[in-house]
Write a protein that binds this DNA or RNA. Structure first.
Length: 420
DNA sequence: TCTGGGGTCCTAGGACCC
DNA sequence: TCTGGGGTCCTAGGACCC
């Protein structure tokens, strides 16, 4: 028999809220939410908020008046990204094989350690004590089961934050799977859940016991892999090094509707700049650029207009000026006069690694010196210190609302908290 | 008044080729 | 009268994730 693997999923508890609480310990035990861009939707909830029945993703305006005690934060991604990287570094001290799955989750391959169970508790303790971030750990032979085990660790206080599938008897496994609805499974979303329910598959156990051939035919390879993993047979590997991204996108809803062309061009230039910086960070070059603008999709009394255009570069590029120029050209082609837009974005694709691009004698593939200088200055003095003209601070009417933003405690010297 | 942003993978179907 | 079939590639759209 093959040796059983110990795959751990470490998942931070309500991560964004926990990050805010690191610098605001007075908020411990109080209902706190973090909102999406424009203070639009609830994207992280403290357990007090979950207990009030407020669902993930609900529009903030629908709940804020009803629950005046809730303390809202606009999202502060530089802070969350910084704390996230500290968590990943700390985890690396406990396990050399780590897949960084998302901003608040990592898979660790603990197979071979003699102290898996105690190690999981040690991880939890270290994250709490050294970083102030509560985490839960789920351990299982496969990633899909580790996700499930993590869910149990989070939900049941008796687990004290760690749950191992590998310590269960077969009867216990069946009992747990029979008690969990099928949509708790990683990869079973709303549509699949509805469809499975119609077939009479309501619990995780129903799915595991379902006819494999039928499932495969009806739902394809994805669900087939999920079932295999739920049976304890791994088919998803730990991905230690992420392949380069295939597309890079930057977009935002506006704080208020925008019809002025200069303001739209400013937004598009802002996103093109952002995308160019990401390309240089990833060391990839783009062949295609897509520009899109959208009217308010929630306003049903007027037509929805979502034009987009895709343009090719003459040669692959990561140059801010080139991207901005092309993006604004695209915008000119799709924008309609006297229409109010609510969102704009830029997406690049057909990316290729910079060092593998065929060098063409007549075109410059290396970023021009000016981009490197811009990156250096912006890194040192703050994002946006040096910009192209289109990306000027005038015409920033489109800026999203961030009424409840916390300071950049850990990434800006002028905002480091003071001790008195 | 007010409704996020950034990704990946899979599949079906059409175009095209021999 | 009768009008191939199999393979690949590409793309758009759907579904899912956090």
């Amino acid at each position: 028999m093959a040796k059983q693997c110990d795959i751990a999923l470490v998942d931070c508890d309500n991560f964004f809220v926990s990050c805010e609480r690191v610098f605001r310990p007075d908020l411990e035990g109080k209902p706190v939410v973090v909102l999406s861009s424009n203070d639009g939707c609830v994207i992280s909830r403290s357990k007090e908020v979950k207990a009030m029945g407020i669902k993930m993703g609900v529009p903030w305006f629908q709940v804020k008046n009803q629950f005046p005690d809730i303390i809202p934060f606009s999202s502060n991604f530089p802070l969350y990204a910084d704390i996230s990287s500290r968590v990943k570094c700390l985890l690396a001290e406990f396990c050399p094989i780590q897949e960084v799955y998302s901003i608040d989750e990592s898979f660790l391959d603990l197979t071979g350690f003699s102290d898996v169970w105690n190690r999981a508790f040690a991880i939890r303790e270290a994250c709490r004590r050294q970083l102030g971030i509560p985490v839960c750990v789920g351990i299982a032979p496969t990633k899909t089961l580790a996700k499930l085990a993590n869910h149990i660790a989070k939900k049941h206080p008796r687990s004290r934050g760690v749950f191992s599938w590998n310590r269960l008897t077969d009867e216990q496994k069946d009992r747990i799977m029979a008690s969990l609805p099928v949509d708790e499974v990683w990869g079973v979303g709303r549509r699949l859940n509805e469809s499975l329910n119609r077939q009479g598959i309501r619990t995780v156990l129903d799915l595991v016991k379902a006819d494999r051939a039928v499932m495969r035919r009806r739902y394809g390879v994805v669900l087939d892999r999920i079932i295999t993993e739920l049976k304890g047979e791994p088919c998803l590997d730990i991905v230690e090094v992420h392949p380069p991204r295939q597309q890079i996108l930057s977009s935002r809803s506006f704080g208020k509707p925008v019809s002025d062309f200069e303001a739209l061009a400013n937004a598009v230039a802002y996103h093109a700049t952002h995308v160019a910086e990401s390309l240089r960070k990833e060391r990839t070059l783009a062949n295609l650029i897509q520009v899109f603008i959208e009217t308010d999709r929630f306003k049903t009394d007027r037509p929805i207009h979502c034009p987009q255009i895709c343009l090719a570069f003459e040669s692959p590029t990561d140059n801010t000026s080139t991207l901005v120029r092309k993006a604004v050209q695209g915008l000119e082609k799709i924008v309609m006069e006297k229409v109010s837009y609510k969102k704009a974005g830029v997406c690049v694709s057909e990316l290729e690694p910079k060092d593998q691009v065929n060098q063409d004698f007549f075109t410059e593939v290396d970023s021009p010196v000016i981009c490197r200088v811009m990156d250096d200055i912006n890194r040192r003095f703050g994002s946006g210190t040096l910009r192209v003209c289109r990306n000027d601070l005038k015409n920033r009417d489109w800026r999203p609302k961030t009424d409840n933003i916390s300071p950049a405690y850990t990434t800006d010297f002028s905002q480091v908290p003071e001790c008195k």
